[in-house]
Simulated assay, not measured.
Amino acid sequence: MATPDGDSAYQNATPSDLAARPWTPPAKRPTVVAALLTALLVAALLCAGLVVVGRSTPADPLPPPQREVPIAPVAPDEPAAPIQVIYEVTASGSGNVGSVSFTDQDGDIIRRGGIPLPWRTTFTADRRSPLVLHAQRKAGGDAGPVSCSITVDGKVIANTTEQGRYAAPQCSG
């Protein structure tokens, strides 16, 4: 009977014959893992080849040359014209006391508390500043409406009304 490597003399050999003969490992057979890795490598190389081939396709022909048109120089940004801003808060009832938070002409947030309502402030700003007004009735008055508004150059750009004893409207524009 032959051995797995096909050597029939191995079966009839004596121990001294085996000691004199060098040992050779059996031939390795490809495993399932090796076959899968090889298949994955081949697939990856094929995909890479397709990508390279896809990128090397000839580009669209160049459009015909255009006549160059001179471009006028661009003027630097001019500062925005100043605007007149009015923030206003009104409340129903009498004896209203509240708080306001608003952005001023520099874009800074200003907070005022314990102010009598109605309340109003006016300032000049450039248009780049965000305009935000938040008001809240803290005491007095009734449970009726509290309103805020933002007016820019005579035009109301935001107006909000909230109901309730501690109503807190917010306007932005």
Rank of each mutant, 00 (worst) to 15 (best):
V33Q: 08
S92F: 03
L45D: 15
T90W: 02
Q66H: 13
R67H: 11
P70S: 15
G141S: 12
P82F: 05
T57S: 09
S129A: 09
A135Y: 07
V32E: 07
V156S: 07
V33W: 14
V146P: 00
A167Y: 01
P70E: 06
V146K: 02
A34D: 14
T161L: 11
L62D: 09
P22N: 09
E78V: 06
L36G: 11
S92R: 02
L131M: 09
D153L: 04
A125M: 13
S129I: 14
A168V: 12
G114N: 10
C148E: 02
T151N: 08
N96L: 04
T161E: 09
E68L: 12
A13G: 04
G141W: 00
L117G: 00
G6R: 11
A9Q: 11
A20R: 14
I109A: 13
V132P: 02
P4I: 07
T90V: 08
I109R: 10
A91I: 00
G6V: 15
A20V: 03
A27H: 12
S94W: 04
A34N: 12
P64Y: 11
P15A: 14
L133I: 15
I109G: 02
V156N: 10
L62Q: 03
A34Q: 15
A43I: 05
R21M: 15
A143Y: 08
C148K: 01
P30L: 15
A19Q: 10
I86R: 09
R111L: 09
V152F: 04
Q163T: 12
A91D: 02
T103K: 05
G93K: 04
D60S: 04
A91Q: 02
W119L: 00
L50C: 15
D126F: 00
N159G: 01
T90N: 10
V156G: 08
Y10T: 12
P73M: 10
V32G: 09
V42P: 08
T90E: 06
R112W: 01
N96T: 02
N12L: 13
D142A: 13
Y166T: 11
A34K: 04
V53S: 05
P73E: 08
C171D: 11
P65C: 10
G113H: 08
T14A: 15
G6N: 04
M1Q: 13
P118K: 01
Q136L: 00
S149K: 02
G54F: 10
K155N: 14
V132I: 07
R128Q: 08
M1S: 14
L41D: 01
P4G: 07
Q84L: 09
Q170E: 14
L41Y: 03
V152I: 13
A19Y: 13
Q163G: 13
K138C: 10
W23G: 11
A158M: 07
I115Q: 04
S147A: 11
I109C: 08
P79K: 09
A44K: 15
A43F: 13
V100S: 03
V156T: 06
T103V: 07
P82V: 04
T103M: 07
I71C: 08
L45E: 05
L36P: 02
E88I: 00
P169K: 01
T14E: 11
T31C: 15
S99H: 02
P65L: 14
T38F: 06
R55G: 08
G154E: 05
I109S: 13
V51D: 05
V32F: 10
R137I: 01
W119D: 00
V146L: 06
D5N: 07
